[in-house]
């Protein structure tokens, strides 16, 4: 890798770290803003509201120190992924999230892969003959899916495929109480994954379809494609080397920006399908008013999103020849 590219990636890495630091400060501020004194709430729940007990809880959770001191402790602990204790479950939050994160990653990455693998080819297909039958059909359907709330599509999928047809399970990640292993366990997972992942994917397929279509049409009208045609290059070669490669750039940029969106989608999808990931965890934290847990989910999601964006930048470096020249793009 050339130095220009490495410099570009280092710049992006620094940017991600700064964003995460800002998220931490934001989190801390929001925690301060939350109504009610958590120590009083906890004490009240345990049926003891005397001053000594409340003070003990304050000390246990570090609530008795000054605000800047608390912020410093907060940043230091987050840097080592020590997210503190869940006020509610009295277990380390890092452990709770660690248990839930794989499920969310399986769900979102499957949906992400599905949407790219289906959306991009469909978008290219639609662009081959603008306003043709295929294009009109694909554009109409994608406009429709684009306007559907995710949780509603999910509920419709449950009504059709689980309740009426009884084909696929509608909740959870695996069959409860069935001691499966190896291939059988994997197939069980796939069966449970089918509805939530395709629901999440449907929305993004329509987005990638629209973006790829627009990008391909844009490139098709450009001078270098006209030149390539004029000098008589074979159409398949123009299509592959000139059109697709260049049309993919905006799609990659967009895909990397979608990571945060995908996490947001997984909250409602996990709630609808009782998928045991961090989205569902955020929902539970919400119901139980466990703000620290909720904000930790927000922090971890931000880390995941930043990591994802960084990967996309690395991919961009590999595809885009122009970065070689100027380090700041």
């Amino acid at each position: 890798m050339s130095s220009g590219r490495i410099q570009f990636l280092l710049g992006r890495l620094l940017k991600s770290i700064l964003v995460l630091l800002a998220v931490v400060v934001l989190n801390f501020t929001i925690l301060r803003l939350a109504p009610g004194d958590p120590a009083l709430i906890l004490a009240g729940e345990q049926g003891a509201a005397d001053a000594a007990f409340v003070d003990q809880i304050r000390k246990d959770f570090g609530l008795d120190r000054s605000v800047p001191e608390q912020l410093a402790v907060y940043i230091k602990s987050l840097a080592t992924f020590d997210l503190g204790l869940s006020f509610r479950e009295r277990r380390p939050i890092a452990t709770i999230i660690g248990e839930r994160l794989p499920a969310t990653l399986i769900l979102t990455l499957t949906a992400f892969a599905l949407s790219l693998l289906i959306g991009i080819p469909l978008g290219a297909l639609a662009a081959r003959r603008p306003h043709g039958m295929v294009d009109v059909a694909l554009t109409t359907v994608s406009t429709a899916f684009f306007a559907m709330p995710l949780f509603w599509t999910g509920l419709l999928a449950i009504i059709f495929f689980s309740v009426w047809l009884n084909w696929l399970p509608s909740y959870g990640m695996m069959t409860v109480g069935a001691p499966l292993s190896g291939l059988a366990a994997f197939l069980d997972l796939v069966k449970h994954l089918a509805l939530p992942a395709s629901t999440l994917a449907l929305f993004y397929i329509s987005i990638y379809l629209r973006i790829t279509r627009a990008a391909v049409l844009d490139v098709m009208g450009s001078d270098y494609v006209r030149t390539a045609r004029a000098i008589g290059l074979p159409p398949t070669r123009i299509w592959r080397e000139h059109i697709l490669r260049n049309a993919l750039l905006p799609v990659i940029t967009f895909a990397s920006l979608q990571a945060g969106h995908l996490i947001g989608g997984s909250i409602v999808i996990e709630t609808v399908f009782a998928w045991p990931g961090i989205g569902r965890l955020a929902f539970d934290a919400l119901l139980q008013r466990d703000y620290n847990l909720l904000l930790s989910v927000f922090f971890v999601s931000s880390v995941v999103v930043m990591a994802f964006n960084f990967l996309a930048d690395a991919l961009y470096v590999l595809v885009d020849p122009r970065i070689e020249a100027g380090a700041s793009a």
């Binding site: 964003v19 800002a22 998220v23 929001i30 803003l33 939350a34 109504p35 920006l257 945060g260 969106h261 996490i263 947001g264 989608g265 909250i267 955020a282 919400l286 008013r289 703000y291 909720l294 904000l295 989910v297 927000f298 999601s301 931000s302 999103v305 930043m306 964006n309």
Partner: peptide, 21 residues
């Protein structure tokens, strides 16, 4: 602006609504 575009927005909206009441 970039910061607000980088963070998971729906989750952030939920956090805000939950905390502000």
């Amino acid at each position: 602006t970039e910061f607000f575009q980088a963070i998971p927005s729906f989750l952030f909206a939920i956090v805000l609504v939950a905390v502000v009441s």
